Simulated assay, not measured.
Amino acid sequence: MAYAKQTGPPPRTRQPLTAVRVHGVDSRADHGAFLNLPHRLHGDLPLWVPPLRTEQRRQVDRRTNPFFETGSVRLFLARRGRDVVGRIAAIDNPAHNAHHGTRHGFFGLFDCADDPDAARALLASATAWLRERGHERMVGPVDFTTNDQCGVLTEGFEEPPAVLMPYNPPYYAELLAAGGLEPAMDLLAWEIPLDLHDRPRAERLARHVARTVRGLRVRPVDLRDFAAETVVLRRLYQEAWQHNWGYSPPSEKEFDALAKQLRRAARPELVLIAEVDGEPAAFTLVLPDVAPALRAARGRLHTCGVPLGLVRYLRAARHITRVRVVAAGVLRQYRGRGLDTLLHVEVSRRARRLGYRTAEVSWTLADNQAANRTLAAFGARVSKRYALYEGPV
């Protein structure tokens, strides 16, 4: 599916004199306005990918999102008169603070018109709610943890977003700065051709690793035993990522819910596990970039019981040529032995065999020098940059 080129930010308009009013989301009508706002604000942006409305509802529903078993969220709307001009979620994530020994609160699901007063009012409301719960800093946007969609796009507005990555107008960074927040960490998205398996140096290294690491086996995930494979992937993810900046340890139910969401788009050939003497040692999670298909679905797979969006989704999915590297990791005791390169070469080979041509690796922390050096050496380029912001509570 071809993307229309983003020609620039929408024209800035003078805001009316009606005062901004922020209130909690309590009624059914408020929930509908909260979920509909990003579609209304960004529906005309050529590169914006509408989230599936069923997924939006599931995320904010205490009955369906396991995050609410330990965490708390307060949703807010900003209005000018009767018009909804912004939204935000204030997030209390005890698991994050217990892991890092911090007193950080979070904000997420942030969407706003080009209205600095509304943004300031929304951020102030989230800050006040978090202050009441004893937090010292506010970080975001995260929806609701860094295992979910997070960050504000700050560079690369002309590039199409990958699946489960955000897209927003350029003025969002200005709104957060107007609200008193400062950049805390940059997240990088890298674009790379799927030709690593054809590069002599990388192929030689992969063969060397395969010969010298005794008891090594690389296998695809077995979707027939999905429950057991989810346990393996969760352990690998937690142990490989637990020391990263911003890492939020998912509960078993949270990881299961995330895995079920990703499974819908997954190709088992691209989710690889490396085992040494039968024990999991490393993994890579790669998904077809179904963002163009989601855009074709226009936020709904079914309308009044008719699968119109699903038909559009499946039609667009036939033409996908990009994958997204969502996560990869090597357990500490196996690092420095080339397992990561071996997996990347194998994924490249398998993805090309399936008809994909390029990959987006997203995201890496800007301060992860080892990963970023490796990607640059492989010929990747930084295609987009996202930022997480923070400020005192």
Score class of each variant (00 low, 15 high):
V347M: 05
N147R: 01
W363T: 01
L294M: 14
L388C: 09
E275V: 03
A274M: 07
A2P: 10
A90P: 08
E346C: 05
L181I: 01
W363P: 01
R295P: 03
R28C: 04
P66C: 09
P141N: 08
V361M: 11
V142A: 11
N36V: 08
A281N: 05
Y171L: 15
T70Y: 09
T146I: 06
P50A: 08
D289L: 02
S251T: 10
Q6D: 10
G179S: 07
R263T: 09
D117Q: 09
P220C: 13
H319Y: 04
M185C: 11
R349W: 00
R120C: 08
R201E: 00
L272Q: 07
R201S: 06
R349P: 03
L45D: 10
P268C: 10
P161D: 07
M138S: 11
A126H: 06
V276E: 04
A387Q: 15
P141M: 15
T102Y: 01
A128H: 14
A124K: 14
V163R: 01
D367W: 04
I91S: 11
E159F: 01
H319E: 11
D83T: 09
L262Q: 15
V163M: 11
D83Y: 04
N93D: 15
F157Q: 00
N372R: 04
N97A: 07
L37Q: 09
N65L: 04
E191P: 03
E390H: 10
L77D: 00
A282C: 03
R80L: 12
L35F: 01
Q15A: 15
A98P: 10
A113W: 06
L331R: 15
V85A: 12
D83K: 12
E132R: 15
H208E: 10
P249N: 07
D26Q: 15
E346R: 04
E55R: 07
A4K: 15
D83S: 09
R131S: 13
G156N: 05
R21M: 14
P193T: 00
G140E: 03
P94C: 06
R349Y: 00
L77W: 00
R373N: 12
D289W: 02
L45T: 03
L342D: 04
A202I: 07
V271M: 14
V163L: 15
H42P: 06
Q149R: 13
P392C: 13
P392S: 15
V323Q: 05
G305K: 11
F67L: 12
L236V: 02
S248R: 00
R214P: 05
A240K: 11
A265Q: 12
N368A: 04
G24D: 14
I88T: 08
G71F: 02
V286P: 09
G8A: 07
Y313D: 10
V311Y: 02
L272P: 02
A206C: 14
P11L: 14
R82Y: 01
K5Y: 12
A178M: 13
G134F: 05
D195V: 00
V271E: 12
L365N: 02
E254Q: 13
Q261Y: 01
V306Q: 08
L223P: 08
D222V: 05
P94T: 02
Q238R: 04
R219N: 07
A4T: 13
V84N: 11
Q333G: 09
Y167R: 13
G338H: 08
F255R: 07
D117F: 01
V209S: 05
A33F: 03
D367L: 00
H99V: 03
